[in-house]
């Protein structure tokens, strides 16, 4: 399987920067997520993760560095977190870091993702 590299775009819609690496198991979603076809965009990422989990079976380090995501994107982010939680439950090594914009509201949002998915997420204020 191949890496995923998507360059972030800030135009009429906002595409996040995505880097998923097979060799290292390091995954990053950064920038802004407000897409025309949200489910379609994230389906590719979810598919990559499922294949990695079933064929490579390595550890995963996931960095979320999103300064903005709309509510449609947040549903897909929960899908990713659910997948990571299941993988962790199966005994895999999974580390999730969430970099948040330094505001009360965004910290709440990360805490809600933790409550929602039961996944341990490291909360890190963004520079």
């Amino acid at each position: 399987m191949e890496d995923i590299h998507i360059e972030g775009v800030h135009e009429a819609f906002f595409t996040p920067t995505v880097n998923f690496e097979v060799a290292t198991g390091h995954c990053e979603i950064a920038g802004e997520s407000y897409l025309e076809e949200t489910s379609k965009f994230y389906a590719r990422l979810l598919d990559w993760l499922r294949r990695y989990m079933s064929t490579v079976k390595g550890s995963l380090t996931f960095d979320f560095k999103l300064s903005y995501f709309n509510t449609s994107s947040s549903k897909c982010l929960v899908d990713i977190l659910d997948l990571l939680k299941n993988y962790q439950n199966s005994g895999a090594e999974v580390t999730v870091n969430w970099y948040y914009d330094d505001s009360e509201e965004e910290l709440e949002e990360v805490e809600d993702f933790i409550l929602e998915t039961g996944l341990d997420i490291n909360k890190i204020p963004m520079e």
Partner: peptide
């Protein structure tokens, strides 16, 4: 409200 959002987020698309 936060609890309600968590609930709504888990509804199928």
């Amino acid at each position: 409200l936060r609890e309600y959002r968590r609930l709504q987020r888990n509804m199928p698309a």
